[in-house]
């Protein structure tokens, strides 16, 4: 066991971990952030996706100790406050981008990262980004539509902010 500092959603967590502890397990078991889901644990399903330095990564394929010094973003940090939904969350709710919700944390973080890097992605780009996250409920079309809607909502928010300022 050794001390590891993890910066998650802007807060530094000091935890004691074995070297073999994955980032996913550290987030869930040691930081108490159970919004990150563990599916296959070998990189196929994408459920455990978190943002590391603003890129989507599979937290089951990263050792927690490797992520020391990185900026980690999880589903708990996506919305500005616990009572407000982020645009991607709002869009997934509105466009039926989820049913059971198990894959949703990973889906939302991948979608958020996509829209951060490309605010106006084509359907082909959305498919390319989202195919690494598996969903066994929705059939994927609604997820693609949710990401498109999220792009629209974000643009509307920005237009409104510009008007106000």
């Amino acid at each position: 066991m050794k001390p590891v500092k993890l910066e998650v959603n802007g807060i530094v967590h000091e935890v004691f971990l074995e070297d073999r502890t994955s980032l996913a397990d550290a987030l869930r078991d040691d930081c108490g952030l159970t919004g990150t889901r563990l599916g296959c644990e070998h990189g196929v399903c994408g459920a455990c996706t978190v943002l590391v330095n603003n890129r989507p990564e599979r937290s089951c394929l990263v050792l927690a100790t490797q992520a020391e010094g990185d900026t980690i973003g999880t589903i708990e940090g996506l919305a500005a406050s616990p009572t407000v939904l982020a645009p991607v969350q709002q869009a997934f709710r509105q466009a039926h981008g989820l049913q059971c919700g198990f894959c949703t944390s990973g889906m939302l973080l991948t979608a958020q990262s996509l829209l951060d890097h490309d605010p106006d992605p084509s359907p082909a780009v959305i498919r390319d980004w989202m195919h690494g996250n598996l969903c066994r409920c929705t059939g994927f079309d609604q997820i693609i539509e949710s990401v498109q809607l999220a792009a629209t909502l974000i643009k509307q928010d920005q237009a409104r902010e510009e008007e106000l300022s």
Partner: peptide, 12 residues
């Protein structure tokens, strides 16, 4: 590279 894994694999 576009055919390798997924974005969340290629990030690392």
């Amino acid at each position: 590279l576009g055919s390798v894994g997924a974005v969340g694999i290629r990030s690392r």
